[in-house]
Amino acid sequence: MFAEPWQAQAFALAVKLSEQGHFTWKEWAETLAAELKAAEDRGQPDDGSRYYEHWLAALERLVTGRGLADRPALLARKDAWADAYRHTPHGKPVVLNVVLNRDAPPDTSL
């Protein structure tokens, strides 16, 4: 059903934000349809396997469009997560505060 865990998370985020009234499901479908159409117009018709990439793009568009988060904050947070992975030793859970306290010694209590 979900090829990778992030697809499930992106799916659930869209459904929950809509349930909470941040956008209607009709608005969701229209935004997703626009992303799919844009991909086709770029000459990249989806065979269905990249569907959740379009889903994610639609989610980012609605989240930023509705002011729930802005693009710079999303980009900064994405970089922070990437950094967290780079600085977390293998086998340890990756948590964001590894980066936020990068100069501090690693928390070994985890």
Partner: peptide
Amino acid sequence: HDHQAVPSDPALRVKALESLLVEK
């Protein structure tokens, strides 16, 4: 050092979205 490889671009974007929205 045996550090963790960085997840895919979409996986990181979802983590960014989710962690920000959860914090708010």
